[in-house]
Design a binder for these strands. Structure first.
Lengths: 334, 334
DNA sequence: CTGTTAGCGCATTCAC
DNA sequence: GTGAATGCGCTAACAG
C-alpha cells in the first residue's frame, strides 16, 4: 500500500508519488533548496494532503546533525534554574534546535550517566549548569567536537570549559553610589540562614564606596521584629538595610508595626527577582535580578560557537538592575 | 579505515570486527539479548577499547521508538512548573527515556509549533502542562497512537486528554479538623493580590467543618501590620490565620512586633512548598505542599499507559501534608 | 546461540 | 532542475 491519504505516517516516498516527482525533489523542496516553482507548489500540496511529518531521526542519522542540544543541571533547584531554562530554550528553539533536559539531583554518578545518554543522542551541543565532578566523559565530547559550555558555575573538570555566569556588579555599584549620594554612611546587610552571593557582592560594592557595612545575621527562626528592636535601636545604627526580597518584606512589616517610618528613619532595599508574587515588591526599592538574561546569553554564546566563533573562557552577564522606589530616601541626620 | 582505536565515532561494525563476532551478536550483547558468556565478554571488551557509543538516532529509525518523551509547558513560570519537571524527568529517565522540554511562554501559536516539532522528533509520549487552545495537531498524535497526558490543567481540546492534577484536599480536611478540635470557630484567610487555589480549597474545607471563614484580603502593598492593628483587634476577630508562606511569615513578624503572642492569642498557619529559604518555616505550622509528588505521578501514569494500562480520565494527586508546629494552639477563650 | 540480509526515512552524489 | 542510486547505524527476521 503506498497511497494512504491520511494514514499516520507518510514518508517522502508517499509525497513524491502523490506529487508526481521524485523523492529527491521532495526533499529539496521541503528543505528550501532550489526547485522549480511548479515542483514546489505540487510538493507542498501533496505533503499537506498526505499529512506528511518529517522524521527527524532519519534526518539526523543521515545528516549527522541532530538539531538537538542537551541541558544538564547538577541540581534543578538551584538559583535561576528555571529562568535559565526558560530563556535558553526560547533562544535555541528559535534557531531550530530542541532541548533535552535532565537533572542529576546533586548526584555525581547520575550526572555522568546523563552526559553519556546525551552523547548517545548525538546532541549538537551541551550545556552544564553548576557542573562539578571529574567527568572523564567530557573528553568524549571533546573528541567528538561537540561544544560544551558551563553556566553559572563549573567546578572540577568543568572549570576548563567556557563559562557563562551571572553578575550583579554594575547594579550593585549603582546602588552603592546612590546610597552614598543620599548620605548613608552605615548600611546593614540582613542575612538569614545561608549566605547570599548577591548580598556579598553588594557588600563589596558598598565598601568600595566608603560605606561601612554592618552584617546583621539573624539566627534561624529569629525574626525581623527583634532586629528592629535590637541593633536598629542603637545610636550608631545603620541608616539603610539591604536584604533578600522576602526578608526585606518582613522588615518593612516589622518597621511599620513598631512605628518606625520608612524611609524617613530607615531606608530598605530588597534584592531578588521580584517574581515571588509578593505584592509589596511594587513599593520596595529593589536591586532587581533578572536571570532571564543569563539564559539568553548562554544560548547565544552556543549558537555563535556553532557558527564558528569560539567563546571567551569567561563571560559575565549583568543581570541586575537598580529600581528605586518609595522605601529609599535621604539618610536621617543624627 | 575500519580499525580506529579511539576515534570519535565507532559503530557496531567496528566493535564486531574487534571482537571477532558478527554485528548482530554485538547488537544482541549490548541490548541484553541472550548471547554466550564468551561473546558477551569479548564484545564488552571490544566496545570499551574502541570507545563505542550507541547511536540512538539509528536505533530510533529502525525500531520506530525514540525512547524520548516531550514535555510542553504553556508557561514554565506557572506554579509547580519546576518541581513537576524535576520529578517527571527522574521518573522517566529511570525508565530509559529522555525528556524534550519546551515552553510556549503563553503563546498559543508557539504551543502548536512545539507540538509539531515533537511530532517530527517522534516522541513516544507527550506531556502538556496547563495546555489550552484548540490544537488540531492533537489529532495527529491520536492518529499516530502517541499517548498524551495533560498535567495540572487542560482546557479546550486538551480537556479531552487524561488529566493528572494536584490536590490538597486531604491535608485541608485534616487541617480543618485539627483547628476545630483546638476550638477555633472563626478563621481568617489572608489573601494578598491574586487569589490562591490552595487557600480557596482550604476555605471550603473549613466551611465543611462548621468553621466560619473570614476573608482578609490585603490590598496591594497593604502590609500585615495594618491587619494586626485593624481586623484582628476586633472582639469577634478570627482566632487563627491562614496565609501563603511568605505572608504568614510577615504576619508572624507583625504579631511579634505588636506584642501579640503566638499561638496564645492567635494561631498562624502557612501554606506553601517550604522551599522558599525562609528559615521561619521551621517554626511555622504549615500545610506543606509538595509538588514533587505530582511529577512522579504524572510520569508513572504515562509509563503504565505505555505498558498497556489506559489511564483514568481524571486523576487527583494529593500533594499536601499537615505539619503542626509551634504557631498553632488552642483558641483563646473569649 | 550466531551470522547474513534487508530495510527504517532521509540527504546527497552523480549523471542526465 | 531533476531522478536514480547509495548508505548513515542499527534492529529484526531468517537461516544455519
Amino acid at each position: 500500500m503506498s497511497s494512504r491519504t491520511t494514514e499516520s505516517k507518510a514518508t517522502l516516498h508517499d509525497v513524491a508519488a502523490r506529487a508526481g516527482v521524485s523523492i529527491a525533489t521532495v526533499s529539496r523542496a521541503l528543505n528550501g533548496l532550489p526547485v522549480s516553482a511548479k515542483s514546489m507548489e505540487r510538493v507542498q500540496k501533496a505533503a499537506q494532503e498526505v499529512g506528511y511529518v518529517a522524521n527527524l531521526a532519519a534526518r539526523a542519522l543521515r545528516s549527522e546533525r541532530s538539531h538537538t542540544m542537551g541541558l544538564v543541571f547538577f541540581d534543578l533547584h538551584s538559583t535561576m534554574g528555571v529562568e535559565l531554562l526558560d530563556a535558553l530554550s526560547e533562544t535555541i528553539e528559535d534557531a531550530g534546535y530542541s532541548l533535552l533536559v535532565s537533572t542529576a539531583r546533586g548526584d555525581t554518578r547520575r550526572f555522568d550517566r546523563l552526559l553519556r545518554r546525551l552523547l548517545e543522542r548525538r546532541v549538537d551541543a551541551l550545556f552544564c549548569v553548576q557542573a562539578r565532578g571529574q567527568s572523564e566523559i567530557l573528553a568524549r565530547y571533546h573528541a567528538a567536537a561537540i561544544p560544551v559550555v558551563a553556566a553559572i558555575t563549573g567546578a572540577g573538570a568543568f572549570s576548563e570549559m567556557p563559562l557563562v555566569s551571572p553578575s550583579i556588579g554594575e547594579a550593585a555599584d549603582t546602588l552603592a553610589l546612590r546610597l552614598r549620594e543620599l548620605g548613608h554612611g552605615v548600611v546593614g546587610l540582613v542575612q538569614r540562614g545561608a549566605s547570599s552571593t548577591f548580598l556579598a557582592r553588594i557588600g563589596r560594592a558598598l565598601a568600595a564606596h566608603d560605606i561601612r557595612v554592618e552584617s546583621l545575621g539573624c539566627e534561624d527562626g529569629g525574626n525581623m521584629g527583634e532586629l528592629v528592636r535590637g541593633p536598629m535601636a542603637r545610636p550608631d545604627a545603620p541608616t539603610a538595610l539591604i536584604a533578600l526580597s522576602a526578608d526585606a518584606q518582613a522588615l518593612l512589616a516589622a518597621c511599620d508595626a513598631r512605628g518606625m517610618r520608612v524611609p524617613d528613619e530607615v531606608s530598605i532595599v530588597g534584592v531578588g527577582t521580584g517574581s515571588g508574587g509578593l505584592a509589596g515588591e511594587r513599593v520596595l526599592s529593589h536591586l532587581l535580578v533578572d536571570p532571564h538574561r543569563l539564559g539568553g546569553a548562554v544560548g547565544m554564546a552556543m549558537l555563535s560557537w556553532l557558527a564558528g566563533a569560539a567563546p571567551a573562557k569567561r563571560v559575565a552577564v549583568e543581570i541586575g538592575t537598580w529600581v528605586p522606589r518609595a522605601t529609599t530616601g535621604r539618610a536621617p541626620v543624627a
